[in-house]
Write a protein that binds this DNA or RNA. Structure first.
Lengths: 205, 205
DNA sequence: TACAAAACTGCAACCGTTACAGTTTCGGTC
DNA sequence: GACCGAAACTGTAACGGTTGCAGTTTTGTA
């Protein structure tokens, strides 16, 4: 029995991992700061590394590329997505769960000014928009698998993977519309009609 | 009245444009040749320029980037796509026209060995696959507009733009399945159910 | 024939990214 | 508590895509 077993609250992680996390955070902070101030394209990774007081080599040891400096925390997004499906309330269909999740999480009225700034930055930077879309669509695989699991289908079931991809298209589709909530609802209505009596054919849960 | 007006058959284009086109073709040919022989990543744009006997500056005057060397002729693809909708046989719905087009053009049993090689090259090169998908999805805007026109909707009608994007997802969705034709049919069935009585509500043509 | 635009050139530079070879720091082990 | 191997970090140098620039050649046209 060891100390970390007795005190699970305190960081079970040693100095090493803490320092690593600190470095990563310093880099991300420096990047965001510089990007917001001067724009993404006008800041070089060398600038970021300098500001974070690390070598560019170290920077790339923590982030796979320049764009990734902005999109930290992608795993959390995917986790929330799959959780929304997996832990949906009893009796609610998969699509309804996704609709609820979309309305809650994607169309939020942004209040946090930091997130707001970040969103504006991504919005005005084509390279970041493209990167964001690529990252986003990579969740399709995971989402498709979860949906298939929940419905007792094969992992690569076409209807499930299609549903996953189509749902993930929604943010792109409704972006920039005057009434995003209504737009989300409309698209989900389309999907529900298409998948009606197909996804229900197998009992959920 | 000028010579070119009397002889519309003969190239109305002068030596200048002809040479320009020749240069472009030489570059594209050199690129494809080298890429097929050594692989995309192991050939530099400087190599391509050298083989085509032009400067790299000239190369980038003709193509916006390395990947674009492979994807010539994207306008033609988009033209075929919109034409499939616009010039569909009398009485056939937009979705049906797209389904037919998809089955004809996207699931072709490739016989041309050149196209086959090229497809294999793209398939085995992640950078090219991503680029191809990005290019492909850019057609969504044009397709959405055409669909909206055909149905007498607003240009940015949500249901039309959504349909366009979903249809263009299909190649990605059915890629690598044992029966692509059946997969295409399945997805179109889903879409038809979703859009039934929505797109028909406005008379086409 | 003369002139302006367009195509092309060579070169140098910037930037993202990686390889490399070495140093420091840390965690666990005898 | 010294020791060892792994992991984090460093600086430098390079590679490859891309662009800017200043100058040369080619071409259409007045």
């Amino acid at each position: 029995m060891e100390y970390s077993d007795v005190m699970p609250d305190s960081p079970a992680v040693g100095r090493r991992e803490r320092k690593k996390a600190a470095t990563r955070q310093a880099i991300a902070d420096a990047a965001l700061e510089l990007f917001l101030e001067h724009g993404f394209e006008r800041v070089s990774v060398r600038d970021v590394a300098e500001r974070a007081d690390v070598s560019t080599t170290t920077l790339f040891a923590h982030f796979p590329g320049k764009e990734a400096l902005v999109f930290d925390r992608e795993e959390e997004v995917e986790a929330a997505l799959t959780a929304a499906v997996r832990e949906r309330p009893e009796g609610r269909s998969v699509i309804e769960a996704l609709r609820a999740h979309a309305l809650e999480s994607w169309v939020r009225v942004v209040s946090d000014p930091r997130l707001d700034q970040l969103h504006a930055l991504v919005d005005r930077t084509p390279a970041l928009r493209e990167y964001a879309e690529r990252m986003w669509m990579r969740h399709a695989a995971a989402l498709g698998v979860v949906i298939a699991e929940e419905l007792g289908r094969e992992e690569d079931d076409l209807e499930c993977t299609a549903l996953a991809r189509f749902v993930l298209e929604i943010p792109t589709l409704v972006q920039g519309r005057h009434d995003p909530r209504a737009a989300v609802e409309t698209v989900f209505d389309l999907l529900i009609d298409g998948w009606r009596a197909r996804l229900d054919s197998e009992p959920a849960h």
